[in-house]
Write a protein that binds this DNA or RNA. Structure first.
Length: 510
RNA sequence: GCUCCGGUAGUGUAGCCCGGCCAAUCAUGCCGGCCUUUCGAGCCGGCGACUCGGGUUCGAAUCCCGACCGGAGCACCA
C-alpha cells in the first residue's frame, strides 16, 4: 500500500487527495494558552498602545495574545490609542498601528482614541473631587516625593471640596505646566510608597496634534475609567504594570466599580534589534536608519520587509504565552517557524556574495535546466549556461567558498560539473574542467558550491540586519518580482525588494 | 533601601492550583543515519532540564520555610 502510494507522482497524489477535505490545523488548535478565568459574560479585551510609532515585536505579543483569546471566546477586541501625553504622539502612528494590526491578522472590533475622550476624564475627576477622593496639589514633584517617602501629608491635602473644585478649574486656565496636579487621596502612610496619593491629572502645554487641550489624565486614571466604561472584562499586559493595576484598584473602589481580570506577563528580552520607538525615531532623523522598516529594526514592518510572515510571528508569540517569568525571545525559533512557511513558496537561485572569479580551462559548452524548486517541477526551471571562449569559461563563486579552496582542490559547481583548481591567486583562480557526472563528485566527496556564470549575471545587493552583501546572482533573477521571497542556496531566505537589472533583496534568515 | 513578582534541557513551552499515572510534554536547537546534485524539506534515531538546602508526606517538579539567582515598580511616561 505504502509502496503503491510512493509510486505515484506528486500530481497524482494531489489529484487523489483533492476529493477529501482536511481539517486545517490552525494555530489555535495546539495552543497552549491557559483558559481565562471568569468568562461568564462576553469577553471584551483591549490592546492599548501609545501612538508613538509603528508596532514592534514587543507589541506583537500583547496584540496576538489578546486577539487569540478574543477569538477563542468569541469576544470583542478594542484598539485603544493612548495619546494622553502630547509629547509622545507621533501623528502617523495612528494609522500605522492599524496597518500593522491588519498585517498581523489581529481583528479589531472598535477603535477608541483617548484624546477624544478628555471630557469624560474631566467629569470623572470632578466626581472624585466631589466625593473628597482627590485634591489639587501644588507641590513640585521633588517636594512631594520627599514628603511621600516621609509619610507626610502636604499642605494641599486638607483643602475643602469647594476649594479643590475651584483649583481644578484653575488647572484649565491659570496654572502653568508643572504648577498643579490632581492627586488621588489614597493615603500617605501606605506600605508601598508608589501608592501614596499618586497623581491622576496634570497639565501639559505641549501642543497635541489632535486636540486643543492642556489638562490630561495620567495613565492610571484614564485606563481605569476607560476599561470600566468600555466594558473590558480581561486585561492582558506586561508585569511592569502590576503596580499600576494596584493603583487603578483605588479608582475602581472609589467609584464602586467591579475590577476586570488582570493577567500580567513577564518581560520579553529581544536581542539584537532596536525596539524603543523614541530611539528609533531619533535614529531615523539622524540617518542611522533608513526608516521604520530598516532591516536592523524589530518593527513589524521591518520584519515584513525581510520576508517574515505574520503567521510565524503569531506562532512565536502564542508559544511564548503569558507566563509571568521573564523570557528571552529566541530568533532561532522564529526563524524555524518562518522557514516552515517560506520553504514551499521560495524558489531557489544562486547568489554569490563578494564574488571571486574562477577561470575554467578545457571547458566544453554547458547548458542545463534546473528546477526553480526541487519539490515542485510544475513551477518551471531556470537555465544555467556557460559558453566557453577558446575552451575557457569563467564563473564567479562566493569569497567564503573561494577562501577554502587550495591548489589541487576538486569541487563541484552545483547543478553543473566538476572542476579542479590549478592555481589560486589573490583575486582569481585558474581551474580545469574535470567531468560532468555528479557520481564522480560524490565518489571524491567533493564540496558542492554554488556559482554564477560570468557572462550572464545580475548584480544583487542583499540588505541584512547587520550590514549588506553585494555580489552576483544568476541570470534568472532578472525575472523575479518585487515581494517574491526566494531562497539563495547555501545562503538563506530573502525578500525581493527591488526587481529588475539590479536586484535588491532583504535578508530574512538562513 | 522599600514594595512586589518569578526561577522546568541552549531557547521557548506543558505539568505546579487539585502531591503518586513525570526515570517530566511538545517545539526549536545540536549530533548521527536514510533520502537528496547544495542549503533547506522529509523520515528515523540520539543529546539535553525540575536553581540549591531543609521540612511535611508512604510518596514532591508539584505543598511549606530559607538561601541563591533573575526581574518589575518606587515619574506631573505609557
Amino acid at each position: 500500500m505504502v509502496a503503491e502510494v510512493n509510486e505515484l507522482s506528486r500530481e497524482e497524489i494531489a489529484q487523489a487527495v483533492a476529493g477529501y477535505s482536511f481539517e486545517v490545523k490552525r494555530e489555535e488548535k495546539k495552543e497552549t494558552l491557559p483558559e481565562l478565568s471568569n468568562v461568564g459574560r462576553e469577553v471584551v479585551m483591549r490592546f492599548a498602545p501609545n501612538p508613538s510609532g509603528p508596532l514592534h515585536l514587543g507589541h506583537a505579543r500583547a496584540a496576538v495574545l489578546n486577539d487569540a483569546y478574543v477569538k477563542r471566546y468569541g469576544g470583542k477586541l478594542i484598539l485603544r490609542l493612548e495619546d494622553t501625553d502630547p509629547a509622545r504622539v507621533y501623528p502617523p502612528a495612528y494609522e500605522m498601528i492599524q496597518e500593522d494590526l491588519r498585517w498581523l491578522g489581529v481583528e479589531v472590533h472598535d477603535v477608541v482614541i483617548q484624546s477624544s475622550r478628555l471630557e469624560i476624564y474631566y467629569e470623572h475627576a470632578r466626581k472624585l473631587i466631589e466625593q473628597g477622593h482627590a485634591y489639587v496639589c501644588e507641590c513640585s514633584a521633588e517636594e512631594f516625593q520627599r514628603l511621600k517617602l516621609d509619610r507626610q501629608e502636604c499642605e494641599h491635602r486638607g483643602k475643602s471640596i469647594r476649594e479643590n473644585m475651584a483649583d481644578f478649574e484653575r488647572m484649565f486656565t491659570e496654572y502653568k505646566e508643572g504648577e498643579a496636579v490632581l492627586r488621588l487621596k489614597t493615603g500617605v502612610d501606605l506600605r508601598d510608597p508608589a501608592m501614596r496619593d499618586f497623581p491622576i491629572m496634570r497639565i501639559s502645554e505641549t501642543p497635541h496634534p489632535r486636540v486643543n487641550a492642556r489638562v490630561y489624565p495620567l495613565m492610571n486614571f484614564s485606563v481605569a475609567v476607560d476599561d470600566h466604561l468600555l466594558g473590558i472584562t480581561h486585561v492582558l499586559r506586561g508585569k511592569d504594570h502590576i503596580v499600576n493595576t494596584r493603583k487603578q484598584e483605588f479608582i475602581y473602589r472609589f467609584f464602586g466599580w467591579e475590577m476586570p481580570e488582570f493577567i500580567h506577563y513577564g518581560r520579553l528580552k529581544i536581542e539584537g534589534v532596536a525596539l524603543s520607538t523614541s530611539k528609533i525615531k531619533e535614529g531615523i532623523e539622524a540617518g542611522r536608519y533608513t526608516g521604520w522598516d530598516d532591516a536592523s529594526l524589530g518593527t513589524l514592518r521591518a520584519l515584513a520587509r525581510r520576508g517574515f510572515r505574520s503567521e510565524a510571528i503569531r506562532r512565536a508569540m502564542l508559544e511564548v504565552g503569558i507566563k509571568q517569568s521573564d523570557i528571552s525571545f529566541s530568533w532561532k525559533n522564529l526563524f524555524a517557524y518562518n522557514r516552515e512557511l517560506l520553504e514551499p513558496i521560495a524558489n531557489r537561485y544562486f547568489f554569490v556574495a563578494s564574488p571571486v572569479e574562477v577561470e575554467i580551462h578545457g571547458m566544453p559548452e554547458f547548458s542545463r535546466d534546473v528546477r526553480l524548486h526541487p519539490d515542485y517541477p510544475e513551477r518551471g526551471s531556470r537555465t544555467l549556461v556557460l559558453k566557453p571562449e577558446r575552451g575557457v569559461g569563467s564563473v564567479f563563486i562566493a569569497k567564503s567558498d573561494y577562501e577554502k579552496l587550495r591548489e589541487g582542490s576538486f569541487v563541484r559547481l552545483m547543478e553543473g560539473f566538476n572542476i579542479e583548481i590549478l592555481e589560486k591567486g589573490r583575486e582569481k583562480a585558474r581551474a580545469r574542467f574535470h567531468s560532468l557526472e555528479l557520481d564522480e563528485a560524490k565518489r571524491r566527496r567533493a564540496k558542492l558550491i554554488h556559482w554564477v556564470p560570468a557572462q550572464d549575471r545580475v548584480a544583487v545587493e542583499v540588505i541584512k540586519p547587520e550590514g549588506r552583501d553585494e555580489g552576483y546572482g544568476e541570470a534568472a533573477l532578472k525575472k523575479v518580482k518585487r515581494d517574491d521571497v526566494v531562497q539563495f542556496e547555501r545562503y538563506g531566505f530573502a525578500r525581493i525588494d527591488r526587481a529588475g537589472k539590479g536586484v535588491v533583496a532583504y535578508y530574512a534568515h538562513p
